[in-house]
Design a protein around this nucleic acid. Structure first.
Length: 109
DNA sequence: TCTTTGACCTATC
DNA sequence: GGATAGGCCAAAG
């Protein structure tokens, strides 16, 4: 640990924290922003350590808008309720109007 | 140091 | 158009 590798995780955490309220993003988008478009899996993997951090992992979903990582949260519909609480419509662990609530990290400038 | 796994994505059948 | 298989990169064991 304690290497530049943490930079990757840290970047993921930063981007995840930069996600505005009522807005969601995808692992691939973050990976692409980090320059590791093919490492989208690592983005989600990084979220493994985001559990104890203030990283809103519930705002990060896969490209289909499906809450695949909800299984890693509380183990129930906690992730879904969090999104709904932010105004994001979620049905059956799937985000509705994903194209509207989708937030691209590249738009931050 | 090598191997396995992993909250994915893309291409192909 | 839907389902299956493979690949990519990085971290943990």
């Amino acid at each position: 640990m304690k290497r530049e590798t943490l930079n990757f995780f840290d970047k993921v955490y930063e981007v995840a924290k930069l996600i505005p309220y009522g807005r969601v993003t995808s692992y691939g988008a973050i990976a692409n922003y980090l320059g590791a478009a093919r490492s989208a899996r690592m983005v989600g993997y990084a979220m493994n350590g985001a559990g104890g951090k203030d990283v809103p992992a519930h705002r990060v979903v896969n490209r289909k808008g499906l809450l695949t990582g909800k299984h890693h949260f509380d183990g129930t519909n906690l992730m879904q309720q969090l999104l709904e609480s932010e105004g994001v419509k979620v049905v059956d662990h799937q985000i509705q109007d994903f194209d509207k609530v989708f937030w691209n990290p590249n738009e931050i400038e």
